[in-house]
Design a protein around this nucleic acid. Structure first.
Lengths: 326, 326
DNA sequence: CTGAAAGCGCTTACAG
DNA sequence: CTGAAAGCGCTTACAG
């Protein structure tokens, strides 16, 4: 009714009002003026829902993260949002906690036409049956690059990065390098562990120790570190699969009076700001988190514009940043 | 058309299909069965947009945060999302970076009927003119409690909490307590500084020193700490307005070889997990972040259900958690 | 218990 | 350059 009201005030048809609203330049300037004045006058606000229904475009993107509390995630999300905004898109955030019920509730927004596409950051293998819900809708995996699915992806070469991490520690003379890994449902966890094992083999190291955590947070890292310290043979280096975990591990080392890196070196993964303020500052492997977000949006929008487009698997650069801890 | 298709297959009217879809129990079981089978058969997915347009309810909530990267924000958002989901609502996240253009783009979703209400976590004073856009739509301020606006709010008693922080430091024998404050556009920053000053007066402390940061992150805290250390007279305690800032400050203290808390005590604010793994662990004032989110949603939904309801300003409990740093 | 019809507020061929 | 009309896919009084 609202656009009707404007039309009545301006003395034109609602088609014309719609044209002005959508900046179609075929409208005669004089008519255009009349309409704009009318819009001002009644403080008209378009009903976006109606527009979306009519055009079957919502300009809304769904973002599925497992835990927004993880700085890695929030930094990527920031990139996603920034790029989305540049293209006039808004984002719907689903903080899934890897909870299938919640994920499927959000994914139904795809078939419900509420969102035009989805960026998933959760583990692919946490989306069992959920991939059916995504169906043929535009989809980009961010941080996970499983080519078995009908989705584009943005990742780094996780195995290679992990290898570089191990070599860095080895170059520092470390002989017993332990890995604290997170959830093996994540492809990147598998890939990094693979890299870790490969590097050890190449280097001829006999010591190999992997401890898994349940929750990817500081506490998880601390618990894993405690576990490792109960071993008969103490490692002389820790490779943490994320900076957050490294943080937890370091706090335990401090409590135990162990010196970093003298007694045990620590290297992390991600490159979150937190790593700059640990004691000592954290050596880590930097992922281009912001760029992860930006590229994901670009790939997604491209697919939305042209659904025929082939999936594309983009591999970005990582960088080892040496600070004090290793 | 889609509901029409189902209707045709089931041999009923689309009104009946709609009734089944909405679980209205007036439908005869036999008819219901027919419809359900038809739905299965053609794998029908309702168009939510159409439903929302028709019912003028989107079951979508807008959440405006200034920086999702701040752990305080992401922990609150997690609470918001959890409670939203319980009520069948989804959330739209706007990471504003206090950017008015971006905020107004998102706020137009209110008048556009894309969201039913908004929770703002940004500084009230960062929303100049934006409050007009919110108009009479359901609105809850989270973390900021400016009663001058037509909005409900969920906060703690910031002044009182700050006073407790200062008294805690004073009880530890600290005489020169400096405050690292964040952005004074935030009401909570003003209130905490007020509390800080009040406590100093009550205690008869002459030393009073406030350093402001530009960006609420580790770097901001570090910079502020460096600035303070250039003073002729060094403080013997730092009250940081957030744990993140405390983290940055502590890293500088370590670099300078100052002992915490012996040389300088540090107390933070918020209670983010990070505080548990600093060296030493961070004494802090805990805000009920998750509960902030939960209550905000509850107040908002109540208002959405009954727009006549008066605004309500809820003040939750804070708690001082003593750990090693002060 | 069920159906025909109106309507939510837009956009977009189509005709002029 | 502009308007009348159809239609996006639902829900909901209203009548029976």
């Amino acid at each position: 009714m609202s656009i009707d009201k404007v039309a009545k005030i301006a003395g034109v048809s609602k088609a014309t009002v719609s044209r002005v609203l959508n900046n179609q330049h075929i409208v005669k300037p004089a008519t255009r003026e009349k309409v704009l004045t009318a819009i001002q006058q009644c403080n008209y606000q378009p009903n976006l829902l109606a527009r979306q229904l009519r055009t079957s475009r919502s300009r809304m993107l769904l973002v599925l993260v497992s835990n927004i509390t993880n700085p890695f995630c929030s930094l990527v999300v920031r990139g996603i949002e920034e790029e989305s905004e540049r293209h006039g898109y808004h984002i719907l955030l689903c903080n899934s906690e890897s909870n299938p019920t919640r994920e499927s509730a959000y994914l139904s927004l795809l078939s419900g036409k509420v969102v035009d596409g989805v960026i998933t950051m959760d583990a692919i293998s946490c989306l069992p049956g959920l991939t059916d819900m995504i169906g043929d809708f535009p989809w980009v995996q961010c941080g996970e690059g499983d080519t078995d699915f009908r989705a584009s992806s943005v990742t780094i070469d996780n195995a290679q990065a992990a290898i570089a991490g191990v070599y860095h520690l080895a170059a520092k003379g470390r002989q017993r390098i332990a890995l604290i890994n997170s959830d093996m449902r994540y492809l990147y966890s598998q890939q990094r562990e693979q890299g870790y094992r490969k590097a050890l083999t190449e280097l001829g190291h006999n010591y190999c120790r992997v401890e898994y955590i349940e929750e990817l947070d500081y506490t998880g890292g601390a618990k894993a570190m405690q576990k490792i310290l109960q071993d008969d043979q103490r490692p002389d280096a820790i490779f943490a699969i994320s900076d957050v975990i490294a943080g937890g591990a370091m706090s335990v080392l401090h409590q135990q009076g162990l010196r970093i890196p003298d007694d045990i070196a620590v290297i992390g993964f991600d490159g979150i700001p937190f790593g700059g303020v640990t004691v000592p500052p954290l050596t880590t492997i930097i992922q281009p988190m912001h760029q992860f977000g930006v590229r994901s949006v670009q790939l997604l929008l491209r697919k939305i514009k042209d659904p025929q487009l082939d999936d594309c698997h983009e591999v970005l650069e990582w960088k080892l940043l040496e600070r004090g801890s290793a």
